[in-house]
């Protein structure tokens, strides 16, 4: 598979997944704000903190309110991680590989894009915000479903899955970090039934509340961390996502799981092993924030490793040196933007 095509597929899926997660976070914050009139402002700042782009936000908007956060995270045309930009870039990614992916995948993103542009033409989707964000989540899920139902399980699909799973793991870790920080300033509160409403909202934003309740009836921090970080079976648990990503990565190289043939496999393999052999108490003991920080650093290293191993192929002969320069320009640049 062409390196450029593989990269576009990988970023197409990361961008869609990122857009979906932003929609999830906002939908839950919006819903939560309705339960706590008067205190809703506290809900919005964490959404900005999640992105790691708080300084950019503060410079442009100052105070985090529903209006300013939605302007920034949903509608902004000059913030690369707004839903508007993510959907646009994902569609451009799809367009650049539409001969490789199934037509239905392209059509799904094209339709999502056209719909989003129509819905936001008049500014913020105030009339039914919840419907709006749910539509994005649904369309993203549909895109994932179409991807899984139409693509041959060859390299193309594995790059798609790799992008999707790594992005999902990354988003969950960010969400956990920020919520933990706002909810639990005092480490002594761990393992007491804390603010049930808040933690339920967190679980809901990853569609996990119902699945969590099947396992645990009470919401405790240890069990939430256990569920969202270490659970091997819940599809939005970090451990599950990374195990999936690891499988796809090895399917691409043909190297058996448990061994490694490049830096991405090495880093991701270690990370998976660590997640498999740790427990929630240890994580909380170390400090969840420190743990998540470290995890994100490693995920970035995995991303860099993927780029080096598959996308940054350079010619050997000196006669064609200009080629490697062009690879770093153009679309590639807009695709590989990551959070600061």
């Amino acid at each position: 598979m062409l390196s450029r095509v593989a990269e576009a597929i990988y970023w197409m899926c990361r961008n869609v997944e990122r857009a979906e997660n932003i929609a999830r976070f906002i939908e839950v914050a919006h819903d939560f704000a309705l339960d706590m009139p008067g205190e809703e402002h506290g809900q919005w700042a964490p959404l900005i903190a999640v992105t790691g782009d708080a300084p950019v936000f503060q410079e442009r908007h100052g105070l985090a309110t529903e209006e300013s956060v939605v302007n920034f995270l949903v509608l902004s045309e000059d913030y690369p991680n707004s839903i508007a930009r993510l959907i646009t870039v994902a569609r451009e990614n799809a367009r650049s590989v539409r001969e490789t992916i199934a037509s239905e995948m392209w059509e799904q993103l094209n339709e999502l894009y056209q719909w989003f542009r129509r819905e936001t033409r008049g500014g913020q989707p105030w009339h039914a915000p919840s419907d709006f964000y749910r539509a994005i989540m649904r369309e993203s899920a549909l895109f994932g479903g179409i991807t899984d139902a139409t693509m041959t399980r060859d390299q193309g699909w594995h790059f798609a899955n790799l992008g999707r799973q790594i992005e999902r793991a990354d988003q969950i870790s960010r969400l956990l970090d920020v919520k933990y920080f706002t909810l639990l300033p005092n480490p002594g509160d761990v393992n007491t039934p804390v603010d049930d409403l808040q933690w339920s909202a967190l679980l809901r934003s990853v569609s996990g509340l119902e699945m969590y309740r099947k396992l645990h009836h009470e919401v405790t921090v240890t069990e939430v961390v256990e569920f969202l970080v270490l659970n091997r079976r819940f599809p939005r648990a970090i451990s599950h996502c990374l195990a999936e990503a690891n499988r796809s990565l090895h399917a691409i190289t043909g190297c058996p799981v448990g061994e490694f043939s490049n830096a991405a496999e090495q880093t991701l393999g270690r990370l998976c092993a660590d997640l498999a052999f740790t427990d929630a108490k240890t994580i909380i003991g170390l400090g969840l924030h420190e743990y998540v920080d470290d995890l994100q650093r490693k995920l970035n290293a995995v991303g860099d490793g993927i780029f080096e191993a598959f996308f940054a192929l350079r010619p050997i002969s000196p006669s064609s040196q200009t080629q490697s320069q062009t690879l770093a320009s153009g679309l590639t640049q807009s695709q590989s933007q990551t959070y600061a």
Partner: peptide, 17 residues
């Protein structure tokens, strides 16, 4: 695209994964 192709040793190649 042009950036997918490269000339080496008298042949044209495409960069793949």
């Amino acid at each position: 695209e042009g950036r997918d192709l490269v000339v080496q040793d008298g042949f044209v190649f495409m960069r793949t994964t």
